[in-house]
Amino acid sequence: MPAGLFWFLAALSILAALGVVLQRNPVHCLLALVLTLLAIAVLFIGQDAIVVGFLQAIVYAGAVMVLFLFVIWLLNLPVESGPTGHLALKLFGTLAVAALLAELAVFLVPSRLQLKFSSAHAAGYGSIDALSQTLFSEYLIAFEVTSVLLLVAVIGAVALARRTTQAELQERKEASARVEKAA
């Protein structure tokens, strides 16, 4: 990855991330988030994580974020006017966040990152072949469990979000009446 591209993407993703946090309009927040995700996706691809990078764009930015958009529309959220939230929380929260950032920054002084890294990749690193080999051998069980998780999530989402229809309400009422009658 060329250094210029990295600096551009880094600046873009940080600005976009700040946009997520600072924008008043939820839709603008969301767009900023999508931009962050895309910038990170390009960062992935730049580090030879090609499949994961594209998946980030397809699944994360292209599908999950659309879901967010739908929900924002569905709730018809107004733009927040004026400062929101607790002032104290904002103050102390910002302080704590700054503290965390400072701590992490101390970690990241290059002389401390004394790991042995190789910058050369084997042929096919990050390709769909390599990812699949790892995914379907070492992480097979985790992969299968993930499929169950997704199924559960789908069922859970449907169960949570659907409204009770009038017919069902009527049916429940009749059922409880039957129970009372029996008792």
Binding site: G85, L89, G93, L100, E103, L104, V106
Partner: peptide
């Protein structure tokens, strides 16, 4: 939930500080 998250964050800062101490 944000108050809880704040306390949680304090814990995270503490843990990171501990590891920082170990590293330094």
């Amino acid at each position: 939930v944000q108050h809880y998250a704040f306390v949680y964050l304090l814990g995270v800062i503490g843990i990171v500080a501990y590891y920082l101490y170990l590293v330094i």
